[in-house]
Nucleic acid binder design. Sequence first.
DNA 1: CAGCCTGACGTTAACGTTAACGCAAATTCC
DNA 2: GGAATTTGCGTTAACGTTAACGTCAGGCTG
Lengths: 375, 375
Amino acid sequence: MVTIREIARKAGVSIGTVDRALHNRGRVSKATQERIARIIAECRYKPNVFASHLSLAKQYTFAVLTPEPEQDGRYWELPMRGIRKAAEELKPYPIRIWPVHYDKYSEASFFKAGEKILKSRSEADGLVIAPVLSAASETFIRRIPPALPYVFIDSYVPDTSCLSRIAQNPYRSGALGARLMDLLIGGKGTVAVCRMVPRDYHIDDRVNGFTEALRFRKDVEIVSFEADRKTDEAVFYHLAERILAERPSCNGIFVPNSLGHQVAQLLKERVPPGRIHLIGYDLVEPNLPFLKDGWIRFLISQRPDVQGYQGIQLLVQHLLLKNPVPAEMNLPIDIVTAENLDEHAGTDPQERAGRSAEAVEARGARPAGRRAVRK
Amino acid sequence: MVTIREIARKAGVSIGTVDRALHNRGRVSKATQERIARIIAECRYKPNVFASHLSLAKQYTFAVLTPEPEQDGRYWELPMRGIRKAAEELKPYPIRIWPVHYDKYSEASFFKAGEKILKSRSEADGLVIAPVLSAASETFIRRIPPALPYVFIDSYVPDTSCLSRIAQNPYRSGALGARLMDLLIGGKGTVAVCRMVPRDYHIDDRVNGFTEALRFRKDVEIVSFEADRKTDEAVFYHLAERILAERPSCNGIFVPNSLGHQVAQLLKERVPPGRIHLIGYDLVEPNLPFLKDGWIRFLISQRPDVQGYQGIQLLVQHLLLKNPVPAEMNLPIDIVTAENLDEHAGTDPQERAGRSAEAVEARGARPAGRRAVRK
DNA sequence: CAGCCTGACGTTAACGTTAACGCAAATTCC
DNA sequence: GGAATTTGCGTTAACGTTAACGTCAGGCTG
């Protein structure tokens, strides 16, 4: 492993000069600067991150900007779980998580949260953002200083200089839902799609993927139902009532958000089992019992926990370990049913299994007397 | 953050003594030993892994004991991909991967590979094992020195003191396959299950899960077909021929290993599309085109790449970062179909995106000189 | 009792990087 | 043209841990 000292020797300067050149701290003549750069490239010098962080003793703070955990049926707890897991795993590293939440229905609240992070700029070294409010996010992104890396989770604002974006292709997930629905209803019948106003691009894409994929099926009719989220808590419960009343022939319902349980509740009360097949999204708590007993046949999961986990991991890879990171992560579209729910349910398997953690203890206690010998 | 120096001050000794006490290097009186231990516990002292590894400058070597990558339709390439990805990501760490492969049909070859690792004991600091040959594995495991941590992937040997085991529940994956099959054949018909001798516990469990889950379906008949792997290359192609001949009413085939493509090939040649529904396992290369064009309806994936990736990660967490690791990781049972294949195909999304990232270059070329020396 | 060993410590030089500090020489300013 | 600043570099003390190496007292052997 080539060190900074060797670089200095080859360049005929001191390590101080090399360090200044490395970090553009100035006070280096142009000629020397270039000579050092050349030698570094030649030797493929990589700074030793251990030594670097030992010397710096810097605390990295990663701000996490997501909706209030309770929103969307406590959906937003899930990414936070993954984030906490990442923090746990990265305990030896000097990192700190700074959660900042906003009301996903209030632009004002989003801006306030964003300002809070940017104002105390000295505090945040990296950002994980769930840009649910797309318009507001766009203007906010422009305000992020270029030196501050940020990654998107859940969805993303296009044409930004984000470090990376971690999401699932909503269109394709809708298409997958369509395929499953086609299977469930045996290729014919009437399928209702539940929607909500105000519209959400992300959700709309799921619906588009769904309807497009079924368009060529001549025996399948698709009908769209829409509800206003402001009317009440159980929007989709009442929407399902309307579906039953207006379309008694319906044999499939597609719920493109996490509120499938509301529809399932109504089905359980009013419809014999197996008559209407329900496909929903997201492994939020209220959905689980319905998936288990079959009122929801499939849930499509976008692994929000993995998204949060990876968000932090990418920042660490980039900032601490100086590794290149992928500009984009397309998470797999998971199909969850009663049979494989257990493996998915505890968010990530590692966290689930880790709960019983085990004492730290002396497993693999170091054999005595082994030491690197130095010249 | 509390340092070793502070511990020393509180205990009224020097840092050398504390270090000896910490690593049981002897030469510390019992009284002092205990005093230090108490203070460490009180202060919740955690050694700084950065400083530690900077000082040690130790290369960790992780041996990977899996079948030849080409076997099982090149299935065993997949865990290796995950392992390489982990190595790539952990580049700043002083770790080295040492792949050792064996012929999964030869116990002798397995033992030879195992001995190779144990003999040069000084070389391996951790082990990732795929114990495909269960009997042989069992005796091999007993020979592993207690100080050498190992993790299982793919399956595991019960009642061992492994650091962790990473696998998928084969029984439950079979049950999931049954559920999907039930859906595909509309709840009635004849389903053929392909098996192979010599038997494999792991595969048998999948079959058990499959047949158990369909037992209560009165309109579904399950028939078992068995082939000898030694007969020829295209075992399952010919087995499928037998199925068609002996059970012309068959409308579903379950292939509990990665050879679904052989069956699919025959179906494509002899049967109209959509008449016989095929469910297989594993995203090996030959399976992919058949999944895409529908001759294979579902593939169940156990994410072999993630298994390899996590295997290395766990060893790093344990050995380098001194973090507690879960004793068991139950990986999710993934359902892959034409619609979500893309997201799964590149093994892990991160690797897929990262492929362009940079050349493999001089990784693995051990730096000369500084090497840990043991007594 | 000299010589040797050993138990129980303390001291110190690494490991590689960082940034503050120092110090000439060159440049700028009034 | 002298003072003040800037430029370009070298030196050095950290950061926390590790293990080789000293030291010193006490015990044992012949």
